[in-house]
Amino acid sequence: MKKLVLSAAVAALMGGAVQQAQAADYVIDMPGQHAFVQFKISHLGYSWLLGEFTDFEGTFSYDEANPSAAKVNVTIDTASIDSNHAERDKHLRGDDFLAVDDYPQARFVSTSYTPNGDGSGVLAGELTLRGVTKPIEIDVNEVGAGPDPWGGFRRGFEGNVTLTLADYGIDYDLGPAAKTVDMYLSIEGIRQ
């Protein structure tokens, strides 16, 4: 009887250890430049303006056995905007757009994740930009997960979301086609 009780206790502990091993925390790999926050916006309706934020950090938690428990937290240095044109970037950092002197950071904190069962899902959360916090939903796809060549473990996702600029107090007139900006996120995390 003692062996049966001991076996059950060991099995319960092992089961808990396996469950804990599946849930993992990741740090976004910015130092290795394996993560990107990019944007695309219409310029006067005639062409596309592309750019990115080059300085951000964040973490996420993900459990393959319970993907709906996923959590994400990202902070972006808004002054790191780079559209490959110094004068335009200066304008984008100014009061007409990001007002980086008053609002040096943008932040996204997830509130829920709804998986579709095929590696994709919808990540809901709160985006704070220019001091305004609004709920957004990001369409997410898992890119992959596995060991890296340095003895670690990595997991990657990509996501897309369209933001309405006026929602965040940005109303500079670049024509009707430039009322929204498309964001593309490519995130690779290193398991901690």
Rank of each mutant, 00 (worst) to 15 (best):
143 V>F: 03
173 D>K: 02
186 S>E: 03
18 V>K: 00
115 P>Y: 14
96 D>I: 04
184 Y>V: 13
46 Y>K: 03
11 A>E: 08
145 A>F: 01
177 A>V: 02
67 P>C: 15
172 Y>I: 13
99 A>F: 02
93 R>W: 00
91 H>C: 05
1 M>K: 14
5 V>K: 08
31 P>Y: 06
145 A>M: 10
135 P>V: 12
165 L>P: 08
20 Q>G: 11
125 G>N: 08
152 G>K: 10
146 G>Q: 12
120 S>Q: 11
6 L>Y: 10
16 G>S: 06
31 P>M: 04
23 A>Q: 03
160 N>H: 11
31 P>N: 12
131 G>D: 12
49 L>C: 06
148 D>P: 08
61 S>M: 00
125 G>D: 07
121 G>S: 09
102 D>K: 14
77 D>H: 11
103 Y>S: 09
38 Q>L: 07
97 F>H: 00
146 G>S: 06
61 S>F: 00
171 D>W: 06
187 I>K: 01
125 G>M: 07
91 H>M: 08
53 F>T: 06
12 A>Y: 02
165 L>A: 12
53 F>K: 02
89 D>V: 01
20 Q>C: 09
49 L>V: 06
98 L>S: 02
83 S>I: 01
84 N>H: 00
173 D>M: 05
128 T>H: 02
124 A>R: 03
94 G>Q: 11
49 L>W: 04
123 L>N: 02
159 G>P: 02
147 P>W: 09
191 R>F: 01
78 T>P: 02
129 L>F: 02
135 P>A: 14
131 G>C: 13
153 F>D: 09
12 A>P: 07
132 V>Q: 13
86 A>D: 13
37 V>Q: 05
54 T>W: 07
121 G>N: 04
153 F>A: 10
96 D>T: 07
125 G>L: 06
156 G>F: 08
14 M>I: 04
70 A>Q: 07
28 I>D: 08
28 I>A: 03
95 D>K: 12
137 E>H: 06
106 A>Y: 05
9 A>Q: 09
147 P>S: 11
182 D>Q: 13
69 A>M: 01
142 E>L: 15
106 A>K: 06
